[in-house]
Design a protein around this nucleic acid. Structure first.
Lengths: 174, 174
DNA sequence: ACCTGAACACCGTTCAAGT
DNA sequence: ACCTGAACACCGTTCAAGT
């Protein structure tokens, strides 16, 4: 059976989930799939394209939310268990923002959050909401790593979600 | 004259400013300094240490602000002309947050922004403020790059600063 | 104290050639 | 259509040896 793009993305996502972004190299991915490194380039344009696809996968099951804090909380809880997930999303954000479905979802909630009319303010508000979530995720994962390194207790996941909720509440009604 | 750590950091900062983070490699830095790559490791522990030092340099002239929006605006305007500056700051933030002086400056402005007592809420608020600035900087630099690529007009720098000001105003009042 | 030079163990990407 | 195999042009880091 020939390799498919879905196989490539799925295995990439598994490596990310299990070992983090530093271990997600094209060569390692190819090795894990039992092909040469060149074979990957039949299925993805380059590494950035791959990371965009991984991001799309992470956000594929995004439910409909009518509250920005709820959406932020859902996003944080799906990204938190994936090491370096915020960095991956930031690559996608830079490379193909329209593929980051959470961004569009936040945009639709902008007016409910008291953002004035016009597309630019809504985009800026949505991007801010996403930045707050990504920052909290990075911060929490880094704290967890530091705790492991010095063998102290890692912070609870609920802590990060509470912080995200508080941040989005603050951000929502200006 | 022997190489100093200050030389290494200064040249690294120049490369970053002129060519971006992708070109700031230890080997290129060494070449530009006229030494072998190994020589750098006498002056910096590793690349992360170097990026932390570059971040400290970028924020060394941070003036005293009594308003979070002003501080955010100053930070944005000093980071905006430096390609990938937000990514460099994020590395410093993950590796040695206490070296990111803007974070401490935001923390001191937390109560003025209506953040309740307690160190955790203030840290979270300050980190949020910084994330909003870094996100806006990344977004603006990416938009500028995209504009260059498709040969359309790049966005004005004042636009980014206005957005940062609006974001921090929203973030400041509870 | 400071640096060289060479090595180690990797990267992402391309592309002629194969099947 | 899909993949191999090898190459190209790089990385960050270490470390014995030199000065």
């Amino acid at each position: 059976m020939a390799l498919t793009r879905a196989d490539v993305v799925a295995t990439a996502t598994r490596i990310l989930r299990d070992y983090g972004l530093a271990d997600l190299t094209m060569r390692r991915l190819a090795r894990e799939l039992g092909v040469g490194p060149g074979a990957l380039y039949w299925h993805v344009a380059d590494k950035q394209d791959l990371l965009v696809a991984v991001t799309e996968g992470l956000m594929a099951r995004l439910p409909v939310h009518h509250d920005a804090a709820e959406l932020a909380c859902w996003l944080a809880s799906t990204l938190l268990p994936v090491p370096d997930a915020a960095d991956v999303v930031r690559v996608a954000l830079a490379w193909r923002p329209e593929a980051v479905s959470a961004l569009g979802a936040f945009e639709e909630l902008a007016s409910a959050a008291g953002v004035g009319a016009g597309v630019a303010p809504r985009e800026a508000w949505a991007r801010g909401a996403l930045d707050l979530v990504l920052g909290a995720v990075s911060d929490h994962q880094e704290a967890a790593r530091a705790a492991v390194a010095r063998q102290s207790e890692p912070p609870a996941a609920g802590q990060a979600e509470a912080r995200v909720r508080a941040a989005l509440t603050r951000w929502s009604r200006g």
